[in-house]
Each structure stands twice: as C-alpha cells, then as structure tokens.
Nucleic acid binder design. Structure first.
Lengths: 237, 237
DNA sequence: CGGAAATTTGAAATCGCTCAATGATAGTGG
DNA sequence: CCACTATCATTGAGCGATTTCAAATTTCCG
C-alpha cells in the first residue's frame, strides 16, 4: 500500500511504471544510514518495509528528526531541489528500500498527469504535517508534543492497515523520541511517566497502548486535518 | 519576480497562462485576514505586494507563524490537500493578492510540464525550509533562532532584488517574531538586546541591519542550502 | 493631542536541560 | 547457557533558559 494511493487511485500503468523506475534494492540493518546529509543528490528511495527517520543535523552537532517514515513512503524527496541532501536518512529498524534515480522519477512525473497530481498533493500533505510539527514544537509543552507524535504515528499505522488499533510497537528509543520532539531523552522519560500516571497511555517493552485517544487528541491540541480524496477541482478524465 | 522563476525559466506562454488564472485582486490592510484556518478551500493566492504570514492556531489558542511570505509567493498551497484550510493567512503589512481558483491552478499544472516541475521543486523547497525551521525551533536557543530567521528573510529579500543588502525593514512586531520563533515577545526583546550587545545586528525603528552576516550564520548553526537551477535530471527537451 | 499599540524592564515561577550515577535489557561470543 | 558488554531506561539534584505577570515607557496614528 503506497502513499501513491492516498489521494488518487493510480492506474495499473502508473503502478507498473513506478515498479520499473526502481533500479536497486537495499536491505538495511537498524541504524544503517541510507544517505548522509550533505551528500550529492542522485536518487530518491521507496521504503518497502521498516521505519526510517529523516534527520537534520545542526552545525553544532544536535540532531532533529524531521520525519518518521513508514512503509510506502518516498524518502529523500525534499532534497531534489538541492545539490546536496538536506537530511540524513537513518533506518530506525531493519528496513528495505528501493532506489529510484532522479531521472526515472522525473520521467514518471512528466509522463503521467495522475502521478504528477499525486506527488503534488502528497508534497502539500507533507508541508501541512511539517507545519503542525513546527506548531507542536514551537508552541506546546512536552506532554502535548509527545501526545501529538504518538497520535500521528497511530493514525498513519491505521491508514497503512485498518486492522491496526490503539496498540502498536514503537521502535524508537527515548533518545530518538527526544530528537523528534525537540526535547531531551531524560525529559521524554519523565513525561512518559506522567502520561502513564494520567492513564492516557500504557507502555510495556517497545509496545505503546493509547488508552484514551480522545483525551490524547485534546491534550495534543492540534487542529484536526481532513485530507481530500479525488478532489473535484483536479478535473481529471 | 515570481518564485516561478526560481528553479526554471518559465516560457512566456506559461507566464501568460498564469496571469489569466487570476480571477480577482484583493487590496488588504495590515492585519487583514485573507483566509481563516478551517475555512473551506476553494482558491489559492498570489502575493503581488506586501508581506503575509501563514499561522497555525492551536486548540489552546496559541499561534505559530509557519511561514513568512514575501511578494511573488503563492499563498495557501499546502491546504489544497485538505478540505479546510490548514492555516490562517494574515497580512503583516498592506498587501495585494490575486485570487487563483483551484480549478485554474490545476489546469496550469496539467497543461504545462514546465509549470508542474516548477511547482514540484518549489514545494520541495518549502519542505526543506520547514525542516530547517523545525530544527531551529526544536534544537537551538533563542539567539540562534532569531539569527536563523533574520538570515532567512535577508536571503530571500536579496533573491527578490539583488540590490537589497544587509539592511532592511522588518515589519513584524516582536509578538509576531515570537510567534515565528516559538518564543515569547518578552524573550524576543531581551534576546534582541543581547544580539545588539554582541554587535551582530543593529536596530532602529523597524529597520534591521545585519552587521556581521558571517557571525550570524555561524550563530544560527543551520546547514547551508544550495538550491538547484535547471537540474539536468529533469531532461526537459 | 490623545489613545492604542508596541517595546522595554523587573521579579518570580516553571519547564526542561545537564550531569552523573544506577538499573534493566538485549545481543554476543565463548 | 552464561558471562560480558553495549545500549537503553530510569532516577536525583542543581542549574539555566524561557515564561509569566505586571508595570513603565515609548512609538505610532488618527
């Protein structure tokens, strides 16, 4: 299930062309680096399985996770407007990615209006998600930020497979959660305990259960987003 | 000078089509709201003159400025993937905007490969800028955040008109700067004084002078970004 | 000139960070 | 299968950055 299906249903020809655009497949261990920030751009990637983080490293050596990628995501797309990669792509779990050269990607975009519109819409979706992330980090306290992040992952897992529920495996260390929320691993730890105490979540091993999704959404305090599907204004067909 | 020219030189036909896509022109007073967060989507806007902010409001009533728009920017584009606008668009100065209905925008995109590629690239650019903003707010202290914001505006003003230099009018109040950096107006005030003391900036009225751009960049500590121009991999004719 | 908006200042409170140490867990090699 | 090691989670104490609240000044505009 691709993100390609999220806004428009792709034709089989498009899906086929997409498969053909892949030139190579990489099997990655946890913590493997797919591409380092600052490296020359020549490809993007399709995440076939596993979780991957996009990280921006500050000159002063601090790391921000700007996106947590789940299977079906395209990786490294923002950097196509740059000479060198904007972010490092790091595997959070074992992962499988397919390489898509930029030339092949451009060809897909040029030759299928459908594909181009899909890319347009999902790029805007990513912008909205980043806007919400900026808002969460810039204007809310630690419990809110964690709530927002957990809900975001929860919602995306649900989209990926509607059988996914309030319980899921969270393969991020507290250090990584800290890098994603603009906090410290120590503070993540203490805030998690607070959320435990409030009975809105439950933790065991790497598993998280959202005990009260309603309360979490209220806590996170972000505006709710309803994405379009087959918007009429595209005037396709 | 459009953002449309930033990555690819548009054909005169494209520029013409773009002009024809505009259906209405709005003259806005400072503080006027062009579109409120949550309103139904039916158009995007072209900023012909003045400055505009995209703001996301939290359920708890806090406001984050996620983008400061300068003349030549398209406004409201991220929300095209939503049923309701993701952000409010608020004029920071007197401003002039042209309305572009979504159907007209889709037509431009569908009928000109050049235009579509331009949109693709500038959407990715906006993602990179947001990633950097997340990093700045999530991982750096107040002086760094302010330095990063001032430099960003400085660079964009320069791009808009290469005669623009280290001195420019900054029409944002300290409250608005706070909303953009994830800080408080009080703290913005004190941090500005600190930057004054360090002799990296100078303030008078609404005018800011970057006295030491080198030092500011070092302070901001963000990775430098070099955007592509006419990338070969597009394989346009 | 008068009033509203914006800037500046001070003092106290809070949130989150740093540092450093301890415990728990999982993976590795013998 | 166990000892060993590395990584991760947890805890405490003290500090630092930023916020909050409230008041005083200054600037802007009609």
């Amino acid at each position: 299930m691709h993100r390609l299906h999220e806004f428009l249903e792709p034709s089989t020809a498009d899906l086929d062309a997409f498969e053909k655009a892949k030139t190579d497949r990489l099997e990655l261990e946890k913590k493997a680096v797919i591409r380092r920030q600052g490296e020359k751009m020549d490809a993007i990637y399709f995440l076939a399985s596993g979780w991957v983080a996009s990280c921006v490293d500050t000159e002063s050596g601090r790391r921000q996770i700007v996106k947590i990628h789940l299977p079906g995501d395209l990786l490294g797309v923002p950097s196509i407007c740059l000479e060198r990669s904007a972010a490092s792509l790091v595997a959070l779990t074992k992962a499988t990615v397919d390489v898509i050269p930029l030339t092949a990607f451009a060809r897909l975009f040029r030759e299928s209006t459908q594909f181009a519109f899909s890319m347009l819409l999902s790029s805007q979706q990513e912008r909205v998600l980043l806007m919400d992330r900026v808002t969460s980090i810039g204007r809310t306290l630690a419990p809110q930020r964690i709530a927002a992040l957990l809900l975001h992952i929860h919602d995306r897992l649900k989209l990926l497979d509607s059988r996914n529920g309030k319980s899921f495996e969270l393969p991020l260390t507290q250090e990584e959660l800290a890098q994603a929320t603009g906090l410290t691993s120590v503070h993540i730890n203490r805030t998690f305990q607070e959320l435990d105490r409030l009975e809105v979540i439950e933790r065991s091993d790497r598993k998280i259960t959202l005990k009260d999704v309603r309360a979490l959404r209220e806590l996170a305090a972000l505006p709710s987003r309803k994405f379009v599907r087959d918007p009429a204004w595209l005037e396709l067909d």
